[in-house]
Design a protein around this nucleic acid. Structure first.
Length: 425
RNA sequence: GGAGAAGUAGCGAAGUGGUCGUAACGCGCCGCACUCGAAAUGCGGUUGUCCGCAAGGGCACGUGGGUUCGAAUCCCACCUUCUCCGCCA
């Protein structure tokens, strides 16, 4: 959410920033509602001041035994009018709040202006796409051959876009979660969090998933609980409505969670395999920083996520997202894209974003410098990394001509009982 | 699910219809004094937010309603926490 005063004073910038993100900001309606609110507010405040003054007089009159009936009668009318106006103002303020909640964050300087994927800027590459002396298979075919992931039965039991992991498939998934968490906690200095997988509507609003994107989330019928689309939601909201001392910053959390996404509007895309599931596992990195540190912290967060792919020996590239691809809440974003041989392309496996104070303002997350006023923190997060897509990447990049899959060395300590370093031999 | 208790500033806590939330008091924090320095001590300061060019004013005692000329204080509903009982992985 943007600051009310900031929007009022920078209408053109807000409109432009939204346009560059490919969204529309209804500035005219904002201005109309904002002005109406202020008009009503000064009027009702005058009435309230009168009520306060007169109430004091009533007290004094009663004390000295005077008759206050006339003033009380007058105040009855004033009070009724105040009640009417208060309710009108409440309606106006709700509308204003709803407008503010739908204004997208403003991109940071240095973010390339562009409309779509084509305008993103690759900033660095790691590794080489592997060469095969056989026709490489897609991960779902490899998995079927090894009998380690069962999509068909998941369709029977739950529905499309779900999977059963089985045997070494399940082991591989669990090994990756532990490998990633250990790396971030032991070597990168993050504190491990295991969050709730359901959150209340307020938390979804705090991080920006609501109110605009409700159709992308799963909601538990008859409740205000939502299945989390990412651990970002519970972990960022961990410090909602808090004021922390400056020394507490930066806070760095690493959280495993299952993630649930309705994938509305993705019908027909990535229908096979692990790339786009309704439920997937992810290790998420979340940071709270002082405003002046968020830029550097985004770089280190991205580097931390990259380290996962480096150690697994997976070829990838880092892409700086253009304004049109930033999404609603981000001010700057890098995507890590891993090489998938079956797609003959790089595909997103992590998304690292700086949200500046956008989420902090929505969620009321602040800090106080010594002797200063409370300021909003900056929040950042990034996948460190998506586990299902990592499984896909390992299966495809490490597949062998005989249908087996070599396990990357970094993962072997997490797969006790594996004979000969290959799944399927 | 049943019974009970509680939600006030960064934290603890007082305040039960009208000099008052610039919220007593304590802790913490900031400044000053004392000190070679620190501790201890003393003095002073320290909520947020909104409207307004300003002067000034409004709002907020978990949330939302209600009663009243006037509510932290009375009434209703809801949320959260705690204690006991029941159930339970």
């Amino acid at each position: 959410m943007l600051d009310l005063k900031f929007v009022r004073e920078n209408l053109e910038m807000v409109r432009e920033a939204a346009a560059r993100k490919g969204e529309e900001a209804d500035i005219n309606r904002f201005t109309a509602v904002d002005e109406q609110r202020r008009r009503l507010l000064s009027e009702v405040e005058r009435l309230k001041n009168r009520r306060n003054v007169v109430s004091e007089q009533v007290a004094a009159m009663k004390k000295s035994g005077e008759d206050a009936t006339a003033v009380i009668e007058e105040m009855r009318a004033v009070s009724a009018r105040i009640k009417e106006m208060d309710s009108e103002i409440r309606g106006i303020e709700e509308e204003l709040q709803n407008i503010l909640l739908t204004l997208p964050n403003i991109p940071l300087p240095g973010v390339p202006v562009g409309q779509n994927e084509a305008d993103n800027v690759p900033v660095r590459f790691f590794g080489e796409p592997p060469r095969f002396d056989f026709e490489p298979k897609a991960h779902w075919d490899i998995a079927a051959g090894l009998d380690i992931i069962d999509f068909e039965r998941a369709g029977k039991v739950t529905g499309a876009r779900f999977a059963f992991y089985k045997g070494w498939g399940a082991r591989l998934e669990r090994a990756l979660i532990n490998f990633m968490l250990d790396l971030h906690v032991n070597e990168h200095g993050y504190t491990e969090i295991f969050p709730p997988f359901l959150v209340h509507r307020n938390s979804m609003t705090g991080t920006g998933q609501l109110p605009k994107f409700e159709e992308d989330a799963f909601r538990v019928a008859g409740t205000e609980y939502f299945l989390i689309p990412t651990a970002e939601v519970p972990v960022t909201n961990l410090h909602r409505e808090e004021i922390m001392p400056e020394e507490a910053l930066p806070l760095r959390y690493a959280a495993y969670s299952a993630c649930f996404r309705a994938e509305a509007g993705a019908h027909g895309r990535d229908t096979r395999g692990l790339i786009r599931q309704h439920q997937f596992n992810k290790v998420e990195l979340v940071k709270f920083t002082r405003p002046e540190d968020s830029d550097a912290e985004l770089e280190s967060l991205t580097a931390n996520a990259e380290e996962v792919l480096k150690r697994l020996g997976l070829p990838y590239r880092v892409v700086l997202m253009c304004t049109g691809e930033l999404g609603f809440a981000a001010a700057k974003k890098y995507d890590l894209e891993v090489w998938l041989p079956a797609f003959n392309a790089y595909r997103e496996i992590s998304s690292c974003s700086n949200f500046s104070d956008f989420q902090a303002r929505r969620a009321g997350i602040r800090f106080r410098r010594k002797g200063g006023r409370a300021e909003f923190v900056h929040t950042l997060n990034g996948s460190g990394v998506a586990v299902g897509r990592t499984v896909a990447a390992i299966l495809e990049n490490y597949q062998q001509g005989d249908g087996t899959v070599l396990v990357p060395p970094a993962l072997r300590p997490y797969l006790s009982g594996l004979r000969g370093n290959y799944i399927g031999r």
